[in-house]
Structure formats: C-alpha cells, structure tokens
Design a protein around this nucleic acid. Structure first.
Lengths: 334, 334
DNA sequence: TGAAGAAACGTAAACGTTTGCAGGCCCTTT
DNA sequence: AAAGGGCCTGCAAACGTTTACGTTTCTTCA
C-alpha cells in the first residue's frame, strides 16, 4: 500500500527531487536526456504522483463540483454525462454531489465543496430560492448555474429560451389546426413561468383563449402528472391538444389517457418539453421541445473554466435555442 | 478569494492553531469553554477548513472514485445515485469518472484516481477484460467491482444471480404455457453468459428446445436490438415468446414488432432483464427481471468502506437475488 | 501541604509536492 | 585567457493541516 513518492524516484535516479518534479511537469528547465531517463524510471517504479500534495502547493485541484438534484433523473444524468466528458477533455475531474432532498442539503453540499477546494462549481439549482441561499458563497468560488433561468441575477448561467420553446410548440399545434389548447403543469420556478409565458404569447398572437391546468407539485414526475391528469379527465375534454410543461408530465398524461380510453393522437394531441430519452422510445414517441442538453453542459463547463483559468470576472447569461422534435403524438385536427 | 485558515482563526482567538484544530476535530484534549469560543469564532470568520491539507497529513481523502461506462445510461445513473447517497451518509464523496469509450480509457481513469488519492474505487467494469487490465492496480488501492460477475476471481464484487434471473423468467413463461421460447441477445461477457446459462438450465428442466438469436454487438442498446430484431422478424416467427437478455434489447424488439404489426403480447410474449426505469413507462409496461440496483449499490459501498476503514483483506463475492416483475408484455399462450 | 496525576494548551515535525533563488558548469565571445 | 551568459540542477521554503510530545496549570487525595 505504500506508494512511491518523488523522493523515492529521486534517490533511485541520483538526482534531487526537484529535478524529478521538473522532468514530469514539462518544465524546460531540464536536460533532455535527464528527463527521458527520469520519465522511464517513474514508469518502472510505478510512480503515479500525489495530486493532493500537488493541489496543496498549487492551490488548484483540477476538480469541479457538479451539484444536481437527483442524478438518477434522465435529464440530469445526461447533463452530467456531457459535463463530465467536456471537463475531462480539458483535464478536469468531476466531483458529483446530489443536492437531494431539500434546500438545506443543497447548501450543505456547496459548503462542503468549498472546503474540498474544488476549483469551481457547476450547479443545477433546485429552485430560484437556491440563489438566495447561496448568495454568500458566490464570491468565494467560481460558480456557474445550469438549466434554470435566473433572469437578471448578476451571475453566470446557461439556460434555454423556455418561452420560445413553448411558443414553437404552440406554433406547431396551431399549424395543425388546433384552436383549443390546454397548458398543463407547474408555474412556480422561473423556468416554468417562462414556459407559461411563451404559451400566453402564442395565445395572444394566434387569438386563442388560454387555459391552464396547474400543478402545485414541487417536482414534475410521471406520477404527479398522472394524478393530475386523472382529475383533469374526469371533467369534459373540450380541448383538442395539451401542452405539457415537461415530458415527465406528458408521460403521466399519456398513462391517464390510455387508461380511460382517450386516444393520443387520434382524440387529442400531446406535446411535451425537454426531450428526455424516454420521449424517443417506441410506443411513447412523444412530440416535444428539445433542450440542447449537450450544448448546455458544454457551454456551462466552458464558462466555468474560463472563470477558473482566466479569472474572468463579469457574468454571462447564455440562452440556447430549443427546437421542435416532431414525433407521433400530434395530429392534424379533423 | 483569499480563504481564512487555521492560523487566522488562531490569531484572532489568541491561541495556537493546534488548539483550533482540536476544537473543531472533536478532540477531548480541550476545555469546553475554549472550544465553544473557537467554534463560534470560526463561524463568524467563515472558516471552511481545507480538506486538501487535511488529506495530506491524514493520508485519507474521504473520497471514493466511481467508474462507470456512460453515466447517461439509465442503469448506471441509478447505481450512481444510490452509491452517492449511501457514500454520503457515511461521510464520503463521490468522484465520478466515465470509462468511455474503451478499455484504454478505463485504465487511464483508474490510474488517474490512484494519483488523486481517492480512498477506494467502485467500478462497473466494461467487460471481463477490465479485470486483466486492472490487475496491477488491485493491490494498490481498495477496489470493489459492481454489477459484472467476475466468477471466481480473487476480488470483491457484488453482482446479481444472473442465471437464476433468466430461470425465473423462463419459469414464468412456461407457467403461461409457452413451449417455444427464443433467447435474444449477447452472450459475450460473463454476465450475459450466465443469463444464457439460466436459459439453458430452464430448457433442460422443462424439456424445451433452446433457440438463440445472438447479438454480436458489444453493447446492448435499443438500436442494436431493433436492427437485429428486424432481421429476425424477416424470417418466420415460429416461437411464442422472446426472452431478451436486456431491457434495452427488449425495447428494440418492441419497436421492430410494432413496425411489422406483430402484436405484443397478443401474438408474442416478451420479457426483458434489468428493470430499467423505462420498462415501467406507460405503453411500454415491460415484464422483466429486476436487478436490485439499490441493494447492489449500497452493498458495494459497504464492502468498499469496510476495506477502507477496517483494512479488511480477503474478498467477498456477494450475489444478490433478482426478482420477476410482472407487467403487461407476457400473456397466456392460446 | 505536598506530590501525583489529569487536563489544557503550545511546539514542532510531518505529509509530498512546486518553484524562486542560487550556484556550478560549459560554451561562446572578445 | 578571462569574462560573460545560458543551461541545468540543487536547496529550501511554502502550502494548511494533524498529532505526538512536552510543558504548564489545576485538581485531588493522602
């Protein structure tokens, strides 16, 4: 278990350990043949280097903290995937922290990351309140918010144009002849407010009557969508399409509709938001608005690394564009 | 950005920094009132502690490396989720490393973790070959393998009884009257060999004729399953049920069947393996064999922490039991 | 009252690196 | 041949903790 250190290698090579360090760090302050000899020796001796000691003196860990609410969630795991890839290609590793189940945990996790000396934090906030909670840490460490739109807060974040997304979907439904479209879902967080705004804009533009079915669940899941939809469908269905604020909700609606024999898309059209992998599954085949997950993750990492490496001070709000993904749950109204 | 150190606090408190350290570490070598005073002061000054320095002297990082092939994969992200929860409850953090795309990367990642001084490694190996590759590192750091069955290798792992899983499924199909069951999928890795073995055992027991449709794709995905199934269905369908070696494959089969108008479960029964979240989705509703993901992750973490904290030397092969999850894709044969 | 022992706190070494500074050698130049 | 200048390499400090050991003060009991 005893690992080999710089000193061991130095002794074996008959040089000082500073020389070994230089040989490995790619410094130009060293002779070519000496370097080669040392590098070879390190290999043979199985020297791996000690990142902790290194971090100690360089005050840099090449580690970035990724804080997400529930990695098991499809959307989060995709973000994590792309963030990890992109960070690794730049020489950084990811420390994964789940911020479940509540805001207190989220704050705890951020505090912990501070002590761990990660170089920066990438965080998918649980709610707008996160921002308040984290206010005091913001100047202690580079931080980039991901996915949630923080509106005009003076902090960097990358998000998607949520209202435009809903608008795109509405446009699509309108072009299919739908004139009575129900908006289904949460309206609490900024993200969801914006999505609802896009809906309202579209209604105004196309001269439609806005109709809402509000969820007050703090998290949108299939189950929550299902229960709300059961309730919804117990009343007369006098609309031809439903815009679900998330794919999860859409799946819940689909389940409820299937159960009561309401056919999608024959009887009613359905469109979601997010484009989680499940939406592309056979039989599900959900028409939806795509969040550019890879782009978001990559951009957020770029932003964070820019702050870390160049000490960039100001902040950027990067809003990516969503896209309509046409699948099988929307149909021309008869 | 300058963070406050032990020394700063010590100066402010008028004590030596050893005293501050003791006040925080819960040592009993310190007076009650002094401790309280110092703890309060740390709070006020915003002292977070420096985990790197701490790790340096304690030779312990309270960090465990989690190596998975592609976290975006549903199964992996669930494992990661439970592993993170369970590790955190024991005071450890997770360093997430994707071992994509090949074995070389996997080895690179493990090497990197060694240098990072994680206390242990939890790894979901890409293939049995991983074990060979990693042989030389095994005695340098506690390591536990997860999910893949390494048979009788002298290393700790937690896996699921794969052959029993298939057997359970076969039993179910048999009880529904199926006498002609096709096994569909990979047979390369140990895991998949064992699943196929369970199939063969059941065939022997029930007096059935084994029939295979082999995939030589190195990874089972919906797409791969779909393409293979298209090919399969171009020939006459003279079996009443398909046992897919993974849920992903089953979903591919489902897609292909839907396309050619082969009805599931009316015309043919389908059963998968893994119980990924997608299997429970409305419309999919796949009957499958469940891997106890939470149990696996939790056990693996326990095992690893036991090695780390108690220096437990030997190795354990823990094989958990799978369970049949009855949903809607299997039906009594007419 | 005095000595022994415990409790509280300070001192300093150690962990394994990186890096500024200084010194030594050799080569070039005048 | 002497001086100057590069190129290598070594020395030692520094990073922020923990902890063994030593010292001082306080308690306690004979």
């Amino acid at each position: 278990m005893k690992s080999v250190t710089l000193k061991d290698v130095a002794k074996a090579a008959g040089v000082s350990y500073a020389t070994v360090s230089r040989a490995l760090s790619g410094s130009n302050q060293i002779g070519k043949d000496t370097r080669e000899r040392i590098v070879r020796l390190c290999d043979e001796m199985g020297y791996t280097g000690n990142y902790v000691a290194r971090s100690m003196v360089r005050k840099k860990t090449d580690l970035i903290g990724l804080v997400v609410p529930a990695i098991e969630n499809e959307f989060m795991s995709q973000l994590a995937y792309y963030a990890e890839m992109s960070a690794r290609s730049r020489g950084y590793n990811i420390m994964l922290c789940d911020s479940e189940p509540d805001l207190r945990q989220e704050e705890k996790v951020v505090k912990l990351l501070l002590g761990r000396m990660v170089d920066g934090i990438l965080i998918v906030p649980q709610s707008p309140a996160t921002y308040e909670k984290l206010g005091s840490y913001l100047d202690q460490i580079p931080m980039v918010f991901l996915s949630e739109n923080l509106r005009d807060q003076p902090q960097s974040y990358v998000s998607v144009d949520n209202s435009r997304g809903t608008y795109l979907g509405m446009e699509h439904l309108y072009s299919l002849g739908h004139r009575n479209i129900l908006y289904f879902g949460r309206r609490d967080s900024t993200t969801h407010q914006l999505r609802a705004e896009g809906y309202l804009q579209a209604c105004r533009k196309f001269g439609l009557e806005p109709r809402f079915c509000n969820s007050d669940f703090p998290r949108s899941s299939i189950e929550n969508g299902y229960h709300l939809a059961r309730e919804l469908f117990s009343k007369p269905v006098d609309y031809t399409a439903i815009f679900a604020s998330t794919d999860s909700n859409a799946l819940g609606i689909m389940k409820a509709a299937d159960e009561i024999g309401l056919r999608i898309p024959e009887d009613i059209s359905l469109i979601g938001f997010d484009d989680i992998p499940s939406a592309a599954l056979p039989r599900i085949d959900l028409t939806t608005i795509q969040q550019p997950k890879k782009g978001m993750a990559v951009q957020a990492v770029e932003m964070l690394l820019d702050k870390i490496e160049n000490g960039t001070q100001g902040y950027i709000h990067q809003i990516l564009l969503p896209a309509l993904v046409q699948r099988g749950t929307c149909r021309q109204v008869r």
